[in-house]
Design a protein around this nucleic acid. Structure first.
Lengths: 334, 334
DNA sequence: TTGTATGCGTTATCAC
DNA sequence: GTGATAACGCATACAA
């Protein structure tokens, strides 16, 4: 039914092997090259990537596992990964595990059954034994965003602690002392690092780290909303608020609007990754921007490099820097 | 390297064919079945899905093309699709085309080169000639959400006009006459249908359809924000606002909060798909909820059915109903 | 029921 | 350089 390399050979009057060699970039006698090209044109031949995979043990697919399809931070990176790997004709099989460790491991097995040539993993919440099976089969792994500290492989991370430090420092330079943080879940490496930066900044300026200024929003919009509400319901109110991811920032802003708190007059705020509304809402928020495109590009190129068998510099750990986009939500107090 | 069916056969002391048949659910003599199962266990054998695909002409993958990885409405459906098809051991290759028709067609070709067994398409913006190639190759197509009216295939749609009608009717029953709509791009079938319902409702109650109450937000948060701003900047202000998707609703709410407009005292509002904040923001919004899980499930089962060669009822067009979740954002005026 | 042999579309290893 | 041929891992028609 589909036209094969054999059909092309017949049409071109050469052998099957010659066509195969042509397709794989070997040199042919000029005359044959033209005949083969002509035949391919006329027959509309396309290589069968599956058959190719059978021989070469390559599926030309890369498994990408993220927490949740609906997480815009992850999917932004995935967009860049896809753009990068498709250039070399790889496609990605994207899976989410909805925060369920059980499901995550099931997906990792699933991907292995499909002979993915590489794995890009957004998670720190996985048993190393499964990863070892990948290693054993020689399938390269790149970890993105969330680190698994004990696990030795290529990683594309963000300088979370540094980002937090600079955010909090900015508040301190503006004379704030009641600096609250809405952080992600404590078992997340990212959360831990972001908290670490918060703590280090306070300590660097001899300010106390007080539990009343620390709340957890589970990296969700609802969580951020509720945490912000709690902060402003009591008598003891922070003057500065640092929110450590996009969804919680969204939720916190909703809460603040609803409570009719003036930003930055009554509250200074620094958020994270304010994708869609960046330049639109008033007052425009000062946010920490993560280089999602770059992360995806690096992760994509890294996995391609390893798939090709190039293990120079292994393990590469890229720690990318964030950028603070200064807008109008931070005010100096007296 | 990997353990093959041949290894299993040798270990079990049966022929390769016997093992193959076992794997494909044929009956074996009890004694042989046990031997084969034992061998599979001991060797940790796993079928090579790629080799299998070469024979059966099945890739066990389904191509899913959405507009944008970061669109939560689409990804919610995709989550359900994936959950459905993975039960039958299919995986999905998810592509986005970022609103670029050129890129969309490129992706469709890409997926065809990978021998996807089926295609699930979220778009109305594609040349039929490409689809015809799928048809010709016998690859089933299911269209989700956006309809391509001239194109005859299985579809999973939403009763957009009906949803709009009931939303606007609700406003009318509450004595509103200045009913504004923030709609998506006019070239989208979904937009057209949602506008149609808006129009029909007004006409049904002998109210005029006025262009001053119609704005376009391009289905984006920023678009919704800007459109809402425009509505409330002039002297001529609507008393009711209907926003036709999630992102625009988010943006509109931001604008409304920022302008300090009281809901529902000064403005009644009905939005769409208020995923994350549904029960959280105050006043809680009355929204139209689309059955994303169900859409994904139906689309997944439909494509599986067609892949199996079951073309009963073709073409099936499922038009699902939305649900209005009534909360506190609509108020009757005198 | 089972074993044998052939083929799926491609790559790779031979001689030539 | 090129052509013939044997794999890759599996499914299946056929004979037994």
């Amino acid at each position: 039914m589909a036209v094969t390399i054999r059909d092309v050979a017949k049409r071109a009057g050469v052998s099957l092997g010659t066509v195969s060699r042509y397709l794989n970039g070997y040199r042919l006698r000029e005359e044959n090259r033209l005949k083969v090209e002509k035949a391919i044109q006329e027959l509309g031949f396309k290589q069968n990537i599956i058959a190719k995979g059978l021989k070469s043990n390559r599926s030309m697919t890369i498994g990408v596992v993220i927490d949740d399809f609906t997480n815009i931070f992850c999917t932004s990176i995935v967009t860049a990964i896809e753009r990068t790997v498709e250039k070399e004709n790889y496609s990605i099989i994207l899976c989410d595990y909805e925060g369920d460790t059980e499901k995550l491991e099931q997906k990792l097995n699933f991907l292995r059954d499909r002979f993915v040539d590489g794995l890009i993993l957004f998670s720190n919440n996985v048993r190393l034994s499964i990863m070892d099976e990948y290693i054993r089969d020689g399938i390269p792994i790149v970890i993105v965003n969330e680190d698994i500290p004990g696990f030795n492989t290529d990683k594309v991370l963000v300088d979370n602690a540094g980002a937090s430090f600079r955010a909090v420092e900015r508040f301190i330079h503006s004379n704030h002392t009641k600096i609250a943080i809405i952080n992600g879940p404590p078992n997340s490496w990212v959360s831990q690092q972001r908290f670490e930066g918060y703590k280090q900044a306070l300590e660097a300026y001899n300010l106390p780290v007080e539990s009343r200024w620390i709340k957890y929003g589970n990296f969700t919009t609802v969580g951020g909303y509720l945490a912000a509400k709690e902060f402003f319901e009591g008598a003891d109110i922070p003057t500065a608020l640092y929110v450590t991811n996009y969804y919680m920032t969204l939720g916190a802003v909703m809460a603040i609007h609803e409570l009719n708190i003036k930003v930055p007059q009554e509250l200074s705020i620094i958020g994270f990754d304010y994708f869609e509304l960046s330049d639109v809402i008033k007052p425009s928020l000062t946010v920490i921007e993560q280089p999602t495109s770059k992360m995806g590009e690096i992760a994509g190129n890294l996995i391609l490099k390893r798939i090709k068998g190039d293990y120079t510099g292994y393990p590469e750990v890229h720690t990318l820097h964030t950028r603070m986009i200064v807008r109008d939500s931070v005010r100096a107090i007296s």
